[in-house]
Simulated assay, not measured.
Amino acid sequence: MPLFIDAFWLNRIAKYLVYGMLGLAIALSWGYAGILNLGQGLFFGFGAYMAAMSLKLQSYTSLQQGSDKPIPDFMLWNAEPNAPTDLCCINEGSFLWLPFQAQWFGMAMAILAPTLIAYLVGSAIFRLRISGVYVAIITLALVLLTRLLIIDAQPVTNGFNGLTDLGWLTIGGFEFDPYMTQTYYLVAAGMVVVLLATRLLVATRAGLILQSTRDDPNRARYLGYNVAAYQVFFFTVSAAIAGFAGMLYVIAAEFASPTFMDLTFSISMVVWAAVGGRASLLGACIGAILINTIEASVSESEMLQEGWKLIIGFLFVLVVLFMPRGLAGLVNDMLDRIEAMLKPGAARPPATTKTAAATAAEKPGE
Rank of each mutant, 00 (worst) to 15 (best):
A48N: 09
N218M: 05
F44Q: 03
D152R: 04
G159A: 01
A141C: 14
V143Y: 03
P344Q: 05
L142G: 07
I286M: 10
V250M: 06
D86L: 13
V133Q: 10
D165Y: 01
M269C: 03
E366V: 11
P99E: 14
A25P: 02
V320A: 11
G106M: 05
C285F: 08
L142P: 07
P114R: 00
L223Y: 12
I117F: 14
L263I: 13
G47H: 02
L10N: 03
V319R: 06
F74S: 08
V143R: 02
P178Y: 00
P2M: 02
K363P: 00
P364R: 14
M109P: 04
L10C: 02
A273M: 02
L42P: 09
I137G: 01
P70M: 13
L140G: 11
L327H: 02
L112E: 00
P72L: 06
G167M: 07
A361G: 03
L342E: 08
L57R: 12
T85M: 12
F44S: 03
L28A: 14
A256R: 07
M341H: 08
G326P: 05
R221N: 13
T198C: 15
M180T: 03
G39N: 11
P70L: 15
V187Y: 02
R219K: 14
Y225R: 01
V298D: 09
Q101T: 15
L98E: 13
V317F: 13
G20M: 06
R219M: 14
F46W: 09
D165C: 01
A356R: 14
Y119N: 00
E254S: 12
M109D: 09
L208W: 10
P349C: 00
I130F: 10
F4P: 02
I90Q: 09
T183H: 02
N332V: 14
M341I: 09
M53A: 06
D336A: 14
V232W: 00
R147W: 05
V275H: 01
F322Y: 15
K15S: 12
L57M: 15
A124I: 07
E362G: 15
V271C: 03
I35F: 07
G20Y: 04
A197D: 03
N82W: 04
T259G: 07
Y225F: 08
W77L: 10
P2N: 04
V250C: 12
A228Y: 08
D73C: 00
S67L: 15
E302G: 14
I209R: 09
L223N: 11
A296P: 06
M53G: 04
F316N: 04
R348S: 13
L116T: 13
V250D: 07
V194P: 04
A358C: 00
Q40V: 01
A245W: 06
A108Q: 00
A7L: 02
W77C: 00
L290W: 11
A7M: 04
Y185Q: 12
A124M: 14
S257I: 05
L144A: 06
D216K: 10
E175Y: 03
